[in-house]
Amino acid sequence: MKIGYRTLKTSVGTPVSILLAQWVGLSNFISAGILTILCIQPSRKSSFLSAWQRFIACTASVVFSCVIFELIGYYAFSIFLLLLLFIPAMVALKATPGIASSSVVMLNLYGSGNITLHLIGEQFVLITIGLGVGLLLNVYMPSLDNKLKKLQSQLERNFSRILYEYSLYIRDENDKWQGKEIAATEDILTEAKNLVIRDKDNHLLRNEHTYYDYFNMRERQFELLKHMLPLVTHLPKTDRIALEIAAFFERLSKAVHPGNTAITFLEQLKELRREFHAEDLPETREAFETRAHLFQLLHEIEEYLIIKNKFKKSDVTPWKKRKSEKGS
C-alpha cells in the first residue's frame, strides 16, 4: 500500500494543530485538527485559495451565528435558519469550499450556549492554527517531473507504434494490430493534463510550463493521427504513392522524440507531393477516390509535422539553408 504526500501531510498536520490549540489553552482544540484536514489540498494554488475561502466563510459564520443565536436563541431551528441564510451568502461570495470549515466554528458557538468576546477570540485563534498549519504543510509539494517524463516516454512509444502500424497496414502486412495504443494514448494524455495542471498550480510565479505546451502539442497531433486511420484503411495496396507514404510513416515512426526534426520530414513530404501531382489524372471512380484519400492523408501528415515544427526551435537546418551555406 502506497501512502501519498497528501495523506502524510494530513496525518502530521492534524495532531500538530490539536497540540498547538491545546498548548494555547483553547476549549475546542479538536476543531483545529478538523480545519487542518479540510485545508490540505493537492497543489499550492488550491491550498492558498482554499485557505482564503475558508477564512472568509469562518469569519462570516461568526457574524451570522452571533446575530441568529442571540436574536432567536440556541435552538435546532436557529441552525436551520442560519444555514438557510449562510449558504447562499457563501455562494454569492464564491466561498462555498469554506462552508464545511465554517460549520465547525458555527457549532462551537452553538454548543457554548452563550457567545462572548473571549469565545469569539478563541474561534479566530482556532481558525489561524488550523488553516495556518495546513498552509505551511502545503508549501512543500513533491516534484512531478519524473511522472511527467515517464508519461512523455510512454506517449512517444505509442506514437511511434501507431505510425509504424499505419505503414504496415498500407503494405498489407498488418493483420494482428488491434489499435490498443490509441486507447492507451488517450488515457496517457488525460493523466498527463491533470498532472500538468497540478504542477502549474505548484509554481505560482511561473507563467510558462514546458510540459503543458508539450502535451498540448501532442494532443493536437494525436487528433490528426486518429483522422489518418480511416484514410489509411482506404488506400490500395498496389498504389506507388501509397507505398511511398507507407515508407514515410515508417521513417517518421523512428523519429518520435522530444526534439524537433520536423523540417526534414516536411522537405520529404514536399517531394512526395510533387510526385503525387505528377501522376496521371485518375480515369475511374475508384482511382479518383484513391487520389482524394491520398491528398487528404498528405494534408493530415503535413499538419501533424507543422504542429511539431511550431512547438520548438528546429534541431536541424532546413535544406534550403544548408544549400546556401554550402555555396557561401
Rank of each mutant, 00 (worst) to 15 (best):
H203R: 12
L144T: 06
I127M: 10
H203E: 04
K180R: 06
S143T: 08
G121S: 13
V196R: 03
I197N: 11
Y166R: 04
L144V: 07
K147W: 08
G132I: 00
K150D: 15
R171P: 02
A183T: 06
L137N: 00
N216F: 07
L151R: 02
Q123R: 04
L151N: 09
A184T: 01
Y164L: 13
T185S: 11
R171G: 06
T210I: 15
H118M: 12
D145T: 14
A183F: 10
E165S: 09
E165M: 09
K200P: 01
H209M: 06
S167Y: 00
D175V: 07
L163W: 03
T116L: 09
L131K: 04
K193M: 11
L136Q: 06
R206A: 08
D172F: 03
L107I: 10
S153K: 15
I197H: 14
V105Y: 00
L204R: 06
F124T: 10
D175E: 09
F124S: 12
Y212G: 07
N146F: 12
E191K: 07
F124P: 04
D201K: 15
K176S: 13
H203M: 10
S167T: 04
T128D: 09
L131F: 01
L117W: 11
L131M: 09
A192Y: 01
L136K: 05
K147N: 13
L144R: 13
L117I: 12
L131T: 06
E208Q: 12
I197V: 15
I162L: 08
W177E: 07
L119S: 02
K200H: 13
E208I: 13
Y140L: 03
L205F: 13
G132T: 01
K193V: 07
E165A: 07
N216E: 12
N158G: 15
L195F: 09
I188G: 01
E186G: 02
I197Y: 09
E191S: 11
P142H: 05
W177Q: 10
L151A: 08
D213V: 07
L205P: 01
Y212V: 10
I170Y: 02
Q123D: 05
N207H: 11
D172G: 13
I162A: 04
N194S: 14
L168M: 11
Y140A: 04
N138C: 06
G111Q: 13
R171L: 11
Q178T: 07
Q178A: 07
L137W: 00
E165D: 12
L148C: 05
Y110M: 09
E191Q: 14
G179M: 06
